[in-house]
């Protein structure tokens, strides 16, 4: 069963332009220049119920616009979308009962009140009867370990505690799809790990997770599939493993030789990233040179004491794809039409 499906979904906006300086300000009083901005272009998506998907892209790529269309806040300019079988912008209120949202930079908890009060309010907003509310609240307090600070005003909580409470609050009405936007932003390593574990746990219960994050750790740890958009276009829709396979022509090789070597002869396909005494860090382009060939070439320099072969971080892969798209082809350019009104 599909949780989210979009077909040819697109959104265009008009954005006002103003020339700089005083003259520009005066001119804008009687003549307004507007440009058409394509925020999302013909997006086709199919996300199965229970999937965990990372929806990524550089700033201004169209992620928020897509989420707003999927939650019914924005009407698309064209195309179709179904979330849990409902058309979001036509049945926004009905859909709202079945989706949850966590926005790392926007809180749904009341700042001066303890989480318990916000939970009470959310229980009423989502029209839970008293028994269901109490049962759900008790489950979430236990699962998310909120007990020690459940009655402490939110302003006195650490960011990690607040985000745990935010996530639990988003689940109070037992949503089937959870939209997460930068859920770990600003968290320390321990709190981030704890949030990730909780999100994994939520997903294992069958809740579809739609994650937007710039943190590749979140993407790698939480999602099996990655959807990337850039300038409103779908750039990538594949599993994280195949993304790595397809875009990982490079390997990072760390070598420790038996004795230090002075300088290295240039090797086609291998780029020395770091060299200190007997230690080497090499980026290997496996399309040009195999690991075995590199090993043999290194052995000619000195016996090898230790070697590790790794993939470059996902962050580098994603950054490369972003850069490649920005360099971009015709289809990736922002379509703008200037109209004078």
């Amino acid at each position: 069963m599909l949780a989210i499906r979009t077909k040819n979904l697109g959104k265009e906006f008009w954005r006002q332009k103003k020339a700089s300086g005083l003259l520009g300000s005066v001119r804008s009083l009687y003549q307004q220049d507007k440009e058409r901005v394509v925020a999302v272009r013909s997006l086709d998506l199919e996300i199965a119920a229970g999937e965990s998907v990372a929806f990524i892209g550089p700033n201004g790529a169209g992620k928020s616009t897509t989420i707003k269309m999927l939650t019914g806040i924005l009407h698309p300019s064209y195309g179709e979308a179904q979330v849990l079988g409902l058309t979001p912008w036509q049945e926004r209120q009905r859909l709202a009962f079945h989706i949850g949202t966590v926005f790392g930079q926007k809180s749904q908890l009341w700042y001066h009140l303890p989480p318990a009060d916000s939970f009470f309010l959310l229980g009423r907003i989502y029209e839970l009867d008293q028994r269901t509310f109490e049962q759900r609240q008790a489950e979430l307090v236990e699962r998310f370990e909120l007990k020690e600070f459940f009655h402490v005003p939110v302003r006195k909580l650490s960011l990690g505690q607040r985000m745990r409470a935010e996530l639990a609050a988003a689940l109070l009405h037992a949503p089937q799809v959870l939209f997460l936007d930068e859920p770990t932003i600003g968290l320390d390593v321990v709190a981030r790990q704890s949030m990730r574990n909780l999100i994994k746990e939520i997903n294992s219960l069958g809740i579809t997770v739609f994650l937007t994050s710039h943190d590749t750790g979140d993407i790698e740890n939480l999602c099996r599939r990655v959807i990337m958009i850039d300038n409103g276009n779908l750039v990538i829709d594949q599993s994280i493993n195949s993304l790595k396979r397809d875009h990982l022509a490079a390997k990072i090789i760390r070598v420790r030789l038996e004795h230090p070597v002075e300088g290295l002869p240039p090797i086609d396909g291998a780029q020395v990233l770091k060299h200190k005494g007997a230690g080497l860090k090499i980026s290997l382009d496996t399309k040009k040179l195999s690991v075995d060939e590199l090993y043999m070439r290194l052995r000619q320099l000195a016996p090898i004491a230790d070697i590790t072969i790794g993939d470059p971080p996902l962050e580098d892969i994603i950054a490369n794809i972003y850069r490649h798209n920005q360099g971009g082809g015709e289809g990736h350019e922002l379509e703008q039409e200037v109209a004078q009104i």
């Binding site: 707003k68 939650t71 019914g72 806040i73 924005l74 926004r92 209120q93 709202a96 009962f97 989706i99 949202t101 926005f103 926007k106 749904q108 907003i125 989502y126 029209e127």
Partner: peptide, 13 residues
């Protein structure tokens, strides 16, 4: 101004 209105609109309110 901050767009928070969009997130409130995503609730059954």
């Amino acid at each position: 101004k901050t767009g928070q209105i969009a997130y409130l609109l995503a609730k059954p309110l």
